[in-house]
Amino acid sequence: MTAGKTRRAGAQVAERIAFALIWTSALATLAVLAFIVLYILDLGLPHVSWRFLTSAPEEMGREGGILPTIIGTIVLTLGAVAIAAPLGIGAAVFLTEYTWESPVTRAIRFGAEALAGVPSIIFGLFGFIFFVTYLKMGWSILSGSLTLAIMILPTIIRTAEEAIRTVPNPYRDVSFGLGATRWQMVTSVVLPNALPGIITGIILAIGRSVGETAAVIFTAGTALNMPTSLVSPLRTMAVHFYILAIEGISLEKAYATGAILIITTLTVNVLANWLIVRAVRRHRRKS
């Protein structure tokens, strides 16, 4: 056997080992995902009942259900999206349709990227010192929604910008050719065509809000009462789950709440994914 042949054989052995490791890593990653989901569902779903979803917690959550935390999650998330969506879509329209690359757009993009990297505990600290204390909003729906809105803003801007960029340029040319103003072109041609992508971004932002704990616990509080106004404090499902688990109040209820939490976030993400796949297909058909 010549030296060249041995080297070749060695390279093939190395390749086989490397590929085996890579396959193992990929399968292990999928297995971890499956394990986490199935583990929570397996131990949580048996304790989930209609009553659990529709009744108030008793004894700090040791007994009863999680209705106020479900309502709290929905209200807080809707509030955050209602604030962040117009701002984010507006920013994306500005970046794509109303300007060209300049120091201003670079600063805006840098701001969005930096904001996306800020950890949620920092948002929690900020929301507490600014909305809760400085603006005297207290632990409330308002403080929590505003904090979450800032947190999800970068996601909405980025996805909306990408979606708007996939709208083919001839559409814009035709619209201008027919005498439309830029704003008419944006509202009647660009936004409708970019809608699936924009909605995907909003759904991802909803998922992030539903699962958020650190930024919510210091701004919306941990009150277990049903919220009655914009300034009432509330507790979201994620915060409730965290408190049940860390204070050892009730493992059973923690698993059950965790199951609802993971079903919600998975549904949201699957929905977003399905929309992306559909939008990509539609885009391919067009071009």
Binding site: I36, L204, G211, Y242, A245, I262, T265, L266, V270
Partner: peptide, 13 residues
Amino acid sequence: PAIQLLAGIPSVI
């Protein structure tokens, strides 16, 4: 999509 789901699982979970 599986990796996206992994990213979507809340940190408390």
